[in-house]
Design a protein around this nucleic acid. Sequence first.
DNA 1: ATTAGTTTGTGAAGAAATTCACAATCCTCC
DNA 2: GGAGGATTGTGAATTTCTTCACAAACTAAT
Lengths: 208, 208
Amino acid sequence: MKRIAESTVRRLSLYLSFLEGIERQGVKTISSDELARLGGTTSAQVRKDLSLFGSFGKRGLGYSVPELSHKLREILGLGKQWRVVIIGAGKIGAALARYRGFAERGFLVTAVYDADETKIGKRWESLTVRPVSELEKDAAGQDFDIAVVATPAESAQTVVKQIVKAGIKAILNFAPIQLSVPNDVTVRTVNMAMELEGLSFALANRGE
Amino acid sequence: MKRIAESTVRRLSLYLSFLEGIERQGVKTISSDELARLGGTTSAQVRKDLSLFGSFGKRGLGYSVPELSHKLREILGLGKQWRVVIIGAGKIGAALARYRGFAERGFLVTAVYDADETKIGKRWESLTVRPVSELEKDAAGQDFDIAVVATPAESAQTVVKQIVKAGIKAILNFAPIQLSVPNDVTVRTVNMAMELEGLSFALANRGE
DNA sequence: ATTAGTTTGTGAAGAAATTCACAATCCTCC
DNA sequence: GGAGGATTGTGAATTTCTTCACAAACTAAT
């Protein structure tokens, strides 16, 4: 398949969230134009995005809401349950472990790890914090899909090496650094400082 | 000034974080090549990004670390303290109010608001949760710069209308919806579901 | 069955972002 | 103070992303 841009994937995700809302309201059909309006983009963009994966609409009519949302879930790989491990049992890790949005979307938090001895053995909901040194061994039997890095910046790159060794191919990174990983590993970074600085830039340069 | 792309601003923010680390280690000078290596990009990209704002380097030598990081802070508007209000006193709001990264970067959390009567009056650190209906009035005297939206998706758009009315021009949005705002208001959205779905897509389409 | 009115899917055009490539400049050392 | 080596700044080339624009395909109405 042709390489798909990250921006495209983000939009697909956005379209899906609209479709799910609309589906609950019982709307049966939607045009690219309407979808574009909701997503703050253009109808051509919507159609182009979808056309990368097939043709799901009916000319003159639009898209069937249930059908399109099913297709998008399929494209985004939301059919199966992904198994998630959280590395770092600090505040962010704790908040994430309790976050219901994971389960709702089919992401099952399977284990929590930390390097700090004093945290090991603590229980969170139904999970027990395990030493990160065991990650690779554990992964052998369990098929973890996604690792969430919620450690301090200093330890993040070390932890990532262990994640990669454990054969995990997708990382959601909350540490405020740039992770270095092999080509076949996908990283998404959530970096509050960067978002805030983006806003700061916008405020500082208004009207120039 | 020419319009600057969001991706450029993100990279500037990234460069700055490297420079700050390097500065603490006492390194005095850095080349675009080194900076590119750290940021996972190319040296040409680094130079192009910086050249949008001036010429800060010395040919044959590279960039002075303290000078460049100072310039970047200036460009990103990190010189002044920005005043932040958090709207939504739920779990995310609470976590953000306690988040030290705000203060470290010069973002001062000034107030917390919520629509839910049962939450109003609660004290968080040195702040008291106030009714969001008072936001506009409060804003008149206080010059709030940035609003953080940490409400459920359902109330987010309503809250945003109040934020806009209060004259706030920058929003950091944690609600999983697309906010609609006037042109002169900048929004950055942090959406975990979208990030997870990006990873899911990558996993589902590996090697195609 | 024909017409009028929609809306898709997609090549082609246009815009934006990235990379190339090299002259210009600076530092160091002899 | 000239030569050699390094690295910037930036037009031009390239690649990627977005928008345009229209034929094709569908519905509904008469």
